[in-house]
Design a protein around this nucleic acid. Sequence first.
DNA 1: TTTAACAATGCAAACATTTGCATTAAATAT
DNA 2: ATATTTAATGCAAATGTTTGCATTGTTAAA
Lengths: 347, 347
Amino acid sequence: MKKKEAARITIKDIAKALNLSTATISRVLSNHPAISENTKKIVNEKVKEMGFSLDPIASSFRSKKTKSIGVVCPRIDIDFHSKVISGIEEYAYKRGYQITIFQSNDSYAKEKEIVQMLETSLAAGVIICPGLETKKYDHLKKLDKSNIPLVVYDRTSEQLKASKVLINDFEASYNATIHLIEQGCSNIAHIAGNQNVDIFKSRLAGFKRALEEHGLPYQEALIKETKNLSYDEGKKAAQELVSITPRPDGVFCANDYTAAAVLKVFRHNGIPIPKETAIVGFSNYPISTILEPQISSVDDSAYDMGLVAAKILIQQIEDKEMQILDYQEVTIKTKLIIRESSNRKQI
Amino acid sequence: MKKKEAARITIKDIAKALNLSTATISRVLSNHPAISENTKKIVNEKVKEMGFSLDPIASSFRSKKTKSIGVVCPRIDIDFHSKVISGIEEYAYKRGYQITIFQSNDSYAKEKEIVQMLETSLAAGVIICPGLETKKYDHLKKLDKSNIPLVVYDRTSEQLKASKVLINDFEASYNATIHLIEQGCSNIAHIAGNQNVDIFKSRLAGFKRALEEHGLPYQEALIKETKNLSYDEGKKAAQELVSITPRPDGVFCANDYTAAAVLKVFRHNGIPIPKETAIVGFSNYPISTILEPQISSVDDSAYDMGLVAAKILIQQIEDKEMQILDYQEVTIKTKLIIRESSNRKQI
DNA sequence: TTTAACAATGCAAACATTTGCATTAAATAT
DNA sequence: ATATTTAATGCAAATGTTTGCATTGTTAAA
């Protein structure tokens, strides 16, 4: 007793109804130049009248092309990635692409598996943030051989030749540090992220450069590297920092969780923020506006990264035939958002 | 000068190499019963040897089935949704399904468009959190007619007959309120969410019931409805609450942003938390552990919701032929996480 | 007029797989 | 030995669209 399903209207039905060939219908639908305006009109009307739409699977089957962009990230529920994905979706949808999402959980094996699957499923393109374990990039290079465009965001490596969307971590950190210096800080600490990761290396480097350029000494004791930039690690680091003499009068943190931790520990020790010690974080998490005082932070423009990643990917997909584009690197502007935790002048 | 692409290995190549028919290969690959163990072995070996894998598009084309689950939510970059999606992906991937994500931005028009597209693209199933604007459900009912299974999560409506994954907002709020009462609160306020949304209505109802059952009066003046449960709205509400006499000795907030706001305002007014006023939030956002004191909160098990949503959807997809399952409603357990903001006994 | 050029359209193959039905071979029952 | 059943496999159709090439009709050039 299976339901009789209403047979789908196909291009053939339209052709029959109008006494045209399926080829013509197909061409109208893809706006082929060699079709007269008149037939175009007739066909489009019929299409609307009969409520027809192309079967995307049949299309893909024949043309060997899909409208599906594979997105691979370590985890979807990390604030940063969810924003990037949101941006990707927004742009891709407008351009008629769908996005298919995978999380690698920072596992190299899984990442490889996913990428390979995207390859065999003929993804139109791939956007990826490589996992922490990923040191080799062969799986991504293979995409190129299959002619599937690729864009990498956030984490990256010199080794990998591909289009990239990044923020300028160096510059952002440099600017954040300069800001602290301008607020009168001269003994500035840094809570750093995992130094195996390029972006955190750059943040440290930018910090360092700012000091150098302003004739301030770089003191190892004031640099606290963490593994995950977690709140707890931040707390531990802050406890060490707060008892150093002379006590740091500025702290630049590689994310907002550690910044929040510094804030808490210093206040606990009766240090007025920003008067005695100014604090700047990174990433502009929601907490930065909820804590008291509100934390200054570098906005990492995650949403925009997604938008741009999708944009340059689709550009590559659609230019693919001509093979003109090789790869491009785009750097997204960041913005230092100055709030109470580092604003001494307003106090 | 177009690249000569390495022709893909097809089922035909395997068939030719082994002098079998493509039908046999196809059957081996889908584990058809009427194939001898021996041929299965031979074929599988050859498949591995030649590095063959089925072309998923050709498969879908012929079988009219995909392995793609459409997920529609208002926005991906909302903490709650990103966690749900993460759960969905985790389970779906294990079961060999891919997820394709869309955001409706709470627009009914866009939601309709997306759902229709999922219909024509033969999604294996759909998981959706309807947008705020959505009052009619015809677009979702149509899915049923096309035989595409559907699971709704979080927001829902009695009107819609479909499988649902929910948390028991009523019970969660009830328990949270009981907790406050057990801590000795007797004059409890509630910061409520938009009362047009079912889940926020339930949270208020659960709150109310707890009061009733413990012989406490329900006072309109202590209920503050907000539109978006934003931090700023919370602040405004808190400012009103703090000056009421007698001042509330407990506040149950429908999310953690408003709870954070209450915390801030009350402390500003010199009210010790939890001694004079205890606070409980909802959703267990990251901020709840970073603020001081840490905020008690109801964990909404977003990740688990996703996991379960994917599970029951796939169950329906794979049972589809028999049409046994109609629809099912699953309620996910929530957990009240008691932290400093409401824990008076430990102080 | 004849020819060439071009624009518009049609024809039919091709795509990789699935599946109902047919066929064959082997095994069992008569 | 014959008939019947069962197991394993093959045949071939069918799926909806795209696209290279062929065809037709029309217009411009010779």
